[in-house]
């Protein structure tokens, strides 16, 4: 599972089909989906509900295995990996920001951020030090020992970002990161994602419905009916009415 820095492409899917269910209830969620994201890029996946954004994101994240097609992330083919190998890949190379934060309410803010490091096998002391440093970066110094539920939505998403980046993943996956936030907080969060993840060795893929944050994207891939319809650099070229 090596990465090849010489390749500019960070994520590539080619001819990906994804089906759910059988018989009459069979749903073709992805239809020959081709997608590319480059290193150092923040790319957004947009499109109407049910167009396959989340499914494509899951395929890229290695939590779903497509029936056909190839998936390559930082030079590593995912479509041929076993579940165990996919788990190891996610552990080493992926960071996640979820729509509903998914912060464990019974753990402190610091402990939530430590989770990816501990999964990687870091010692408790190392995990504490790195998690503290990351929380400081996202502006939550002094809130380490509070409970996530005591924080505002924006603060919780900042904790989630700290958790996603604390183990320095190559690929940051963000699923509707601003859907639970107001406009200003959403903008702050996206600015933070952009600032913290800007690196030639990193790629950020954001699934969103929120057109207010399109301006933070380097490119925007518009999906429709299980396919990438088009990729644009200028958000004004999109018809946001049907997104």
């Amino acid at each position: 599972m090596s990465t090849h820095a010489a390749q500019p492409v960070a994520v590539r899917t080619h001819g990906v089909d994804m089906f759910f269910g059988d018989g009459e209830t069979k749903v073709n969620a992805l239809k020959q989906a081709d997608f590319e994201a480059n290193r150092g890029e923040l790319i957004m996946l947009v499109g109407p509900s049910g167009c396959g954004k989340t499914t494509l994101l899951s395929v890229i994240a290695g939590t779903l295995t497509p029936q056909t097609g190839t998936v390559e992330v930082f030079g590593q083919r995912l479509d041929g990996l076993s579940q165990e190998e996919l788990t190891t890949f996610r552990r080493k190379h992926l960071g996640f920001v979820f729509q509903s934060f998914n912060l464990i309410p019974t753990l402190s803010v610091l402990e939530n951020v430590m989770v990816p490091l501990l999964i990687q096998g870091a010692s408790h002391d190392v995990a504490v030090a790195k998690a503290r440093a990351m929380l400081e970066k996202v502006g939550l110094k002094g809130r380490e020992y509070g409970q996530p539920n005591a924080l505002s939505g924006g603060q919780q998403q900042r904790v989630a970002i700290a958790r996603a980046l604390v183990h320095e993943p190559s690929l940051l996956i963000c699923d509707e990161p601003t859907s639970a936030l107001d406009k200003d907080t959403g903008a702050q969060i996206m600015q933070m994602v952009r600032d913290l993840s800007r690196s030639p060795e990193r790629c950020v893929v954001v699934v969103t419905h929120d057109h207010r944050i399109f301006r933070f994207a380097d490119r925007i891939a518009e999906m429709e009916d299980g396919r990438i319809r088009r990729v644009v650099e200028d958000a004004s070229l999109l018809d946001t009415n049907h997104l």
Partner: peptide, 9 residues
């Protein structure tokens, strides 16, 4: 599930 997604076996 989130912990699994993050790479915990």
């Amino acid at each position: 599930a989130a912990i699994k997604a993050m790479g915990a076996g």
